[in-house]
Design a protein around this nucleic acid. Structure first.
Length: 118
RNA sequence: CCAGCGGACCAGACGGUCGCCUCCGCGCCUUGCGUGGAGGAGGAAAGUCCGGACUCCACAGGACAGGGUGGCCGUUAACGGCGGCCUCGAGCGAUCGGGGGAAAGUGCCACAGAAAACACACCGCCCGGUGGGUUCCGGCCAUACGCCGGUCCUCCGGGUAAGGUUGAAAAGGCGAGGUAAGAGCUCACCGGUCCGCCAGUGAUGGCGGAUGCUUGGUAAACCCCACCCGGAGCAAGACCAAAUAGGAGGGUUGGGUCGUCCGCCCGAAGCCCUCGGGUAAGGUCGCUGGACCCCGCGAGCAAUCGCGGGGCUAGAUGAAUGACCGUCCCGCUUCUCGUUGGGAAGUGCGACAGAAUCCGGCUUACCGGUCCGCUGGUCCC
RNA sequence: GGUCCCAUCGUCUAGCGGUUAGGACGCUGGCCUCUCACGCCAGAAACACGGGUUCGAGUCCCGUUGGGAUCA
């Protein structure tokens, strides 16, 4: 049994402003205390992730750390995401004070693992 | 050892697992993927406060306007930076902080105060008055009336700037002489101004002489003087791809990146402005080897410069440089022991903070640690 | 990333370097009314922060912080 790949190449990222706007208009939204999650099926482009962290969250160091933690969560838990679906995570105020474990615990409630993975 | 001053440097370490970005090599269905290797945030990368490089704008010439700087000399590509020196102030000191012109002109200086800048007027002091009043004293006179002199109050004329509640600031200070009262009126000392000589490139300092010497503060008020500055900025700019119809209205001989004028260049039914619409908001280059870093020698007090040798040290673009685990280090808290110290447990996004064209500075943020030089004090040899 | 602008009561705003920092709406209390509204009277309430220049800063200069605009 081959291990699930945990890479996160550029193809798996949302890089266009228009793509973000499309999800914001058409996607399904979920709210948690520190994040907003938007999901929408795409046209056979694979699992993709976009992250939005505005300056309200903190300074550049804090924003970078939040983005890295969210990408890490996506990378480590790709089996929890449906294929051919785009996901955007928007960080809200206070997200910069969280640890990686806290982020994981909060997002699991929305993106939690399916029982039959691996 | 205690207290302090100045400067330089470091910015947790090692290992493992999973990832990200760039470059190089190899393989393959040369697109891209796989695989191996190398490299991958800072002292402030920050604020964007100065200065340059670079790019574009007839290649930018002049005048005015506008802005900036401000002791002197040096340094540099340049600077508002840096170094040395000068001077004033603070400190016992190491050291630190400030720096053109107020006698070119204009404005302002509230309240208070006599007065806030031509020194005039007020109180006061002094002198004078065949001015007025008559409280008191003395004289003439027997007393009184009256007269004369003094004193007191008031008025007028003059002298004076010593003193005067104030104020942030009061017209050289202080002492003595002098005078009717006073006054640089005179004198000594201090301060100032001017001249000369000497030292220094200079700011400035020293010495000597002359002059009794009215002439605040504010230029981060206007301003004057000296010097500097063309404008915009890598979202600059160049190319490629995609898309559409070169639409409507207006203005005109103009337009050309700065505010005005001149000059210069381009143009002559072309250009400009506004409105509406279409496509796209993509890619490549610019993009990192540079006033670069390290070491040594030399010039210089130093900033800095020259020469020689060695090194290559991020280039992303919804934007890489991370997450987790282990051991150690460090800080904090608690407990404990044989207490200048050691041990155990717990704790910590382990200070501030993330490159975005690149450099030189400045400023601001910052848990701590290391080293060097110096000052004052105390103790010991 | 670059270039600019702004900050005064809760809100919108005035404000010559010298005032007790003014006004409107709102708020609180009182009067009026049977009650509410209107009206009248009174009151509380602010110069973003830190330095500097000045005798004296809301105002002038510098820095910090927080908002906002704009450029392909």
């Amino acid at each position: 049994m081959s291990r699930v790949r945990e890479s996160f190449p550029k193809e798996a990222r949302l890089t266009r402003r228009s793509e973000f706007l499309l999800l914001a208009r058409r996607g399904r939204k979920f709210f948690t205390p520190h994040f907003i999650i938007i999901r929408k099926d795409n046209d056979h482009l694979g699992k993709r992730l976009g992250v939005t962290v505005s300056s309200k969250v903190g300074n550049a160091v804090v924003r970078n750390r939040v983005k890295r933690m969210l990408r890490e969560f996506f990378r480590r838990g790709q089996q929890n995401f449906r294929p051919d679906q785009d996901t955007v995570v928007i960080a809200r105020k206070g997200a910069g004070d969280m640890s990686y474990a806290a982020v994981t615990a909060e997002l699991r409630k929305v993106i939690g693992p399916k029982p039959n993975t691996r």
